[in-house]
Nucleic acid binder design. Structure first.
Lengths: 111, 111
DNA sequence: GCTATTGTGAACCACATCGTTAATTAACCG
DNA sequence: CGGTTAATTAACGATGTGGTTCACAATAGC
């Protein structure tokens, strides 16, 4: 995988388990076992997912006794939002209609 | 890789070459050789990237003589935008300040 | 029909990813 | 100290990714 920040973030988000973990953390901090509870995978698997999320800067982990509470860190999501926003005009309708209008005009000229 | 639509889209975006291809296509249709020109990789490598983008629904390909012009299809990006928007309150500042306020209040009560 | 251009397919390699089980670290508690 | 709980590390396997080179299909144009 490419090692630039945006690629790392997108790669971290390309997994439903990891996105579900983020959704859970949006409701507040949670420990690893709490996060693992809804999934039919082993604890080490969850631990690996958390490491991916941490490397992407999407979570941080504290340390309270033997628990390692995870917190959501959404700044990288802000960068994703900024990136995708550049393309908004291509999907929000107005551009499609404009493009079709332009194509129609062009065909008219060709005739 | 997971096979749900959102995961496929995120995975397709987790590569700077593919994002650059999308950026190029935002300026209009282009052929495979045109798209390959800025990159120091072989044509088959670009062909594979295009296949990934096509499977994610991010591009469509026409067929004019021996050229296969590519077009940007941004609808999946709209889904990405919708997904990330759910988390906006976690990075746009106001929430951080609110959270800190709540923590401060809680500490006050604990004293 | 021959040749050049455009693009894909097949086969292969190096390496990353996602999962497992078993062992290990770290901390609490009686 | 000994036992329990929480979580990570290590080692392994299956599969996917991204790149290569070489061969091939499809079309244009002489």
């Amino acid at each position: 995988m490419a090692d630039d920040a945006l690629s790392t973030t997108f790669a971290a988000l390309a997994d439903p388990t990891r996105r579900a973990i983020l959704a859970r953390l949006a409701g507040g901090e949670a420990t690893v076992t709490e996060l693992a509870e809804p999934f039919a995978v082993s604890l080490p698997a969850i631990s690996k997912h958390l490491k991916v999320l941490e490397k992407a800067g999407l979570i941080t982990r504290g340390r309270t006794a033997q628990w390692r509470p995870c917190r959501l860190e959404a700044r990288p999501l802000g960068e994703v939002a900024d990136w995708v926003e550049e393309y908004r005009r291509f999907w929000d309708g107005s551009f499609d209609r404009l493009a079709e209008h332009l194509r129609a005009v062009q065909e008219g000229e060709a005739r």
